[in-house]
Design a protein around this nucleic acid. Sequence first.
RNA 1: GGCGGCGUGGCCGAGUGGUUAGGCAGGGGCCUGCAAAGCCCCGUACUUGGGUUCGAAUCCCAACGCCGCCUCCA
Length: 463
Amino acid sequence: MIRLFDSVHGEIRELQLRDAGEVSMYVCGPTVYDLPHLGHGRYTLIWDVARRWFTFRGLEVRFVSNITDIDDNIIARALRDGVDESEVARIYEDQWWDAMTRLGVARPSDTPHATQFVDQMVELISTLLELDVAYATSDGIYFDVSRVADYGLLAGQPLDSLRAGARIEANDEKRSPLDFALWKNAKPAEPSWSAPFGDGRPGWHTECVVMSLELLGDGFDLHCGGFDLKFPHHENERAQAVAAGRPFAQHWAHNGWVMVGAEKMSKSLNNFTSLTHLLEETDARAYRLLVLRSHYRSPIEVSPATIADAERALSRLDALARRFGLPALAGQTLEVKSSFNWEGPGLDLLERVCQKLDDDLDTPLAVALLFDAVSAANALADAGDEWSARALASAVAALFGALGLALESVGDEVDAASAALVSQRDQARAEKDWAEADRLRAELVALGWTVEDSDSGTQIRHS
RNA sequence: GGCGGCGUGGCCGAGUGGUUAGGCAGGGGCCUGCAAAGCCCCGUACUUGGGUUCGAAUCCCAACGCCGCCUCCA
């Protein structure tokens, strides 16, 4: 049984599945008009972890995440760069998948593009117009939030109090400041699609509700996204579904954001670091470990210091993998490691880790258990209990693998010159010529190697 | 104004009524030719003021500070 915090009820609840053994989940994806930033990295990592965990637990996961390839930001970018909107979307979508690949985020089962679902969006808007929950203004079609009885469910407050705080909008044709655009009328030189209620393009909130329902069907299980999407984006998606009489997501999960110092990282504050940039100079696994070490609903600080901290913690895991020659059990695939032989202390670890992760995806506690197991495995090996040590260490690698973190046991490629120094050093050590051995070690270190002695002689890897 | 979250040891970051979170950094020891890696031990923290309790970082009340959503945002 998987339990997960549900934003609507404000408590941890059992994840009820529409179809036994199958999870249908939707994660709001990026609008592709710029490089992905660290916030995108966090949400993709944590929901990738959730997906992998559900899969590991034997559930069949249909994981849908969209690409918003038409909206105001894309149009603005196209204008700025003097290229076509579709070109902007193509460029940044490529960047997106590059970053996802490097992060080790598995491809969603489906990656719907907004522009491919315009017909269905037009259909939904027509329905909403027929039902009189939508109305036309001079610049588009708007949704009348007052027509949804429980509007404000996700925001956690009634419509009245939301309205009280709403700021004055430029558009005074709207019946309520909270009414949102379903369709924006075509403007010259902007992409548009034909519709019975006038040519134009869809609003963002309509894109997600249509794509999720279209691919996952009515009453799908789980809708995820950052906390900042809870309102108004998710509220508005839900409002449309409710108004159209279609059961929507049964469970809502939101992740905490990335902080820069004491502030949320966001586009509007222009304080974001691009994910692309981070991945150029960092082992992507460090970001995954950093994400795993805090709870998904808490804010996290991503800075050179916290990344470096995670990198050092990671090296402890890799050292374990090297010591036991453990295979890397993660990557692009979601293969369930059913063939893995859980035994002895490894089986015990599996049970305890499952207990934590099944309870609101408590990755920080699970990671703490795994680090405890690293110490225990090393201690067992030091004490000569190879069997137990190996069973435990293998389980650690398998469980990190289940969370998408591959431990690295294979050494770096060693060039001929360095290899020669290594064998010379082994020779010197065999002859107990310590001065020469130390000199050769210094030479290797100067070449950027970390040098360690082992039973089988000098081992080197990149620092 | 409405709603929500947070304040933990040098740093990051869990926990939530009584037993060690974990990682990083630091100190001591073991191991090692010396190192590295690894193992063992150590720091004795919970914004402040009240209260409840045999006992609170954990519950209640108040105060202070910080952050977020209500507007494009993951």
